[in-house]
Amino acid sequence: MAHSNERDGDDADAVLDSVGPAFSRLRRRAPSAGKDLSRNLVLNVVAERTGETTVGAIAEELGTDQSVASRMVSDCIQHGHLRREASQADGRRSVLRLTPEGDALRDRFAAEQRRSFEHITRDWPADERLQLARLLVKYAEDAAALRKLERS
């Protein structure tokens, strides 16, 4: 296991070049796999978006086509995690809402992800663990803000 203090002497460009492959490895080894990972992605998009969320918005947020997003949403509806409602802005459109079961599943995923993070970083000093957590949250927020700017 390479800890950050072992990488202090690394060339900055080499470390920055390794970020993409590291994210790829993290994604492949995510604790939630298969359908659970897809459900988690969809439920988080619905929960985090302001305003009405449509299948098209899910597709855009996840960077996938409408048909893939539609199948993912249908799976969540079939399992009782989401429900369709008529849009308040345009009754011809359907919007997605989390059900109490969807909220509970999101909570379970979040707890599982926290346990994984704590297990992986169990040998780290507490300040490094918290620093990484803060930086990951900051990175995710800034990435989301950049996506919104790119769409405007």
Rank of each mutant, 00 (worst) to 15 (best):
V45K: 00
R134G: 06
E48W: 00
D107F: 06
N5R: 15
V73F: 01
G91D: 13
F109Q: 01
S87W: 04
R71D: 08
E52V: 03
P100H: 02
I58Q: 07
L43G: 11
G63E: 07
P31K: 06
L105M: 06
T99A: 07
L105R: 04
V45S: 00
C76H: 00
R84E: 12
A12H: 13
L37Q: 08
R92K: 13
A143F: 05
V137A: 11
G102C: 08
S94H: 09
A69Q: 04
T64K: 14
L26R: 10
A145E: 01
V55E: 12
C76V: 02
A110L: 09
G51E: 06
H3Y: 13
M1S: 15
T121Q: 05
L98T: 06
W124F: 15
H3D: 14
R29V: 01
D142I: 03
D127S: 10
R106G: 09
V68Q: 06
A69I: 01
F109A: 05
L149W: 02
P125K: 05
Q88T: 11
L130S: 10
F109D: 10
R115E: 07
R39T: 07
G56D: 10
R108Y: 06
S116G: 07
P100E: 13
A22N: 08
S38I: 07
N40S: 12
E141D: 11
R122Q: 09
D142W: 02
I120H: 10
R122M: 07
L82Y: 01
L132A: 13
R7C: 06
K138V: 08
R27G: 09
G51Y: 07
L62C: 13
S87Q: 03
A111F: 04
G9S: 14
D90E: 15
R129H: 15
A133M: 09
F117R: 03
E118A: 14
R147G: 04
M72W: 11
G63K: 02
G80E: 04
S152F: 02
Q113I: 04
R25M: 03
T50H: 13
A57F: 00
E101P: 04
R84V: 01
S32I: 08
E61W: 00
S32T: 11
D103E: 14
R114S: 02
L135Y: 04
K138T: 09
A104T: 12
M1R: 14
D17W: 07
R25T: 09
K148W: 00
V19E: 02
L37M: 04
R71W: 01
S152C: 07
T64F: 00
F23A: 14
R71Q: 09
